[in-house]
Amino acid sequence: MSSLGASTSRFPTTIYADRIARAGALARDAGLDGLLITPGPDLRYLLGSRAESFERLTCLVIPANGDTASVVVPRLELASLTESAASELGLTIRDWVDGVDPYALVSGLLPSPARTAVTDAMPALHLIPLSEALGALPVLATGVLRELRMVKDDAEIDALRRAGQAIDRVHARMGEFLKVGRTEAEVAADITAAILAEGHTEAAFVIVGSGPHGADPHHEVSERVVESGDVVVIDIGGPVEPGYNSDSTRTYSMGEPDPGVAAKFAVLEEAQAAAVDLVRPGVTAEAVDAAARDLLAAQGLAEVFVHRTGHGIGLSVHEEPYIVSGNAIELAEGMAFSVEPGIYFRGEWGARIEDIVIVTADGCEPVNTRPHGLTVLPG
């Protein structure tokens, strides 16, 4: 067994111990022999590890029978676990060198044939040889881990609050960055610097959609010059330690908006507020989507709302629960997700309003508190 150090950029070890124990119990309840977790958000959730996935296998093996979990890791990648909770948890570290079959190491930790579930981030490069070694095709662990990752604990909620406050501070400075005559790319460069200055470890995404580009929900940036009269969508976010993300969108007008634009935006603002107001335990995800969608439809804007109302957020920017028609899951205290209806007029303009909210015992707590209206900047 190798000795691994600790890091301050993760939660206390007791949190990871509880998560691994609960994951093993849920796997047992699902009739599985174990969970196989390769690098990605699930591994970070369970172990606090930032290891990356390469051609050499790194895999956390959680037996469903309650035995101690193990990490199979290439010897030359041992350093990737130094910031994780592996050593403090007392996990068995089974390091290997080139020439050793790591898939056989994994299968040797479980019954044969083994009924296992794998993280959805596992590359096919590893999934196929693991299946052969285990004697059975694994299933996705999403159904097992979803129950854990969807409901955030107090430490995760605190991290999401910090992320939300940090990205709000960036939006508060938009008047410094977003000016007529600057290109979207120039605006985005300043926003990126501000995101880092406000405590994020990276700017995971920066969307500056000016004028007709605002009608593309996933436009990033271009060399288009911001013009007087433009409506500009700014959607920005990224992670704060230990890896929890912000994601907030506000829409700006370069000068006083056209009355028709202002009227349509007012409907969007009402729709976003209606969806947020509905959030509470027991309400379904699809009902929150409908709260925004139905209001927009009543004003003739159904066809220009082209995406779901929201997505879960945590270690991944997009994760469950998804706030979309057809998702009948009931919201529970501790769930965190975006509420972000938008309207998009192809070739003309677009608008979106997005907050991250956390479900509370009797409603929800938005972690973003910047004004929701169409913010007018000098045009």
Rank of each mutant, 00 (worst) to 15 (best):
S2H: 02
S2K: 02
A6K: 10
S9Q: 10
R10F: 01
T14N: 09
A21P: 01
A21M: 05
A23T: 10
L32K: 13
I37R: 11
I37Q: 08
G40N: 08
R44T: 13
R56M: 11
G66L: 06
V71K: 10
S80A: 09
T82G: 01
G90I: 05
V106A: 04
G108E: 02
G108C: 05
G108N: 13
R115V: 09
D120P: 15
I128F: 13
A136I: 00
V139A: 00
A155P: 04
I157C: 00
Q165K: 05
I167H: 06
V170H: 11
V180Q: 07
V180H: 10
T183I: 03
A185K: 12
A185D: 15
L196I: 12
V206P: 06
P212D: 07
P212C: 12
V221A: 04
V225Y: 12
E227G: 00
G229I: 03
V232A: 11
V233Q: 05
P239N: 08
T251S: 00
P257Q: 01
P259H: 08
V261R: 03
E269I: 02
A271E: 02
D277R: 14
T284S: 15
A287I: 04
V288W: 06
A290H: 10
A292V: 09
A297V: 01
A297I: 04
L315C: 01
V317K: 06
E319T: 14
P321M: 06
P321V: 14
I323S: 05
M335W: 09
G347H: 03
E348P: 00
A351T: 08
R352F: 09
D355G: 08
I356V: 15
V359D: 06
A361F: 04
A361I: 12
C364H: 14
P366F: 09
R370C: 07
P371G: 11
